[in-house]
Amino acid sequence: MIHLAKRVIRQTLNDKRSVMMIFVAPLLILTLVYFLLGDSDYVSTVGIEKDAMPGPLVSALEEQDLHVVELTSDDAQQAKEYLKDHQQVDAIISFSQNSGMTITMYEPSTKGSKAVREIQAAMASLNPAAKVNLSYVYGTQDQSMFDSLGYVFLALFSFFLVFIISGMALVRERSGGTLERLLMTPIKRGEVILGYTAGFGVFAVIQAILIVLYSIFVLKLSSVGNIGWVLLTMVLLAVTAVSFGAAISVFASSELQVVQMIPFTIIPQVFFSGLIPLDLIPYHLGNLSYIMPIYYGAAAIKGVMVYGDGFLQIWGYLLGLILYSFLLYLLNTQALKKFRKL
């Protein structure tokens, strides 16, 4: 087993693209996610018909973090046409006797939502009694989306990248004939799977340490709990990914076919990883998450990073990952019987 693990390590190190995929790609994508989901310094632009609006509201709007553009009465009445021609304006506030205040936006988007939040803040400032303060058991009102969802990406990367590399390596082993040759030596079938797991496990440990340190110390992703548990979870998740990749490789005869299976194997797991709250998924489909390994990893990482959980709170998820790996190990050793009965 140790010889196989060493070979996997040496072979992966000799393939520069695999090294980049394991160590550089997750940091690069995390950085992009950080900028995409992080705090934005975007200032919304709101169009108003100054004369038709109450003076205090105009003043309150001007005090918010907004660019206020003054519109003519015609432009305000033809708000949709104006927005089509002036896409730098995010929202137009218009007043009428019958329908009161109307906010018109170009399309439902986060840009529009930000403008609406500022308008609501302006209105709340006119009536302090209507002001609502939000407070949370975990997290704060002003934390960015990256802070809220960052843990999901830690789970996704530790699973996805190792899955791809190990799945492809095993397919290559089969298609190149080396698996048959390997199994004509006295190595046991279980040792083949364990050797692969140990070999990629080394990369998984280094990858997990890199990702966690980079997220917490460079991207300032907040973590309430002990990051040691996050590391352990990520390594267990990556070990599961190796077995998962091995199992999927049984059904693929080329590297391309591993890629073709991603929509069936990985994409559904992304949806059930915590990006979308499982309670919101209709028809109890959220329960499907229990058959997806990423769910266990993401739930444990969230527990530690967001709720400050320790081993006593996350052991069930870790056990889920270990059981998943063990079942896949049994499945994979059975699958190798195709190449050698013994």
Binding site: N14, D15, G176, G177, T178, R181
Partner: peptide
């Protein structure tokens, strides 16, 4: 006790 040379070379190209 058996040595086997398959039809394809069955070697690790990256080693």
């Amino acid at each position: 006790k058996i040595g086997f040379m398959p039809q394809n070379d069955a070697l690790y190209d990256d080693l």
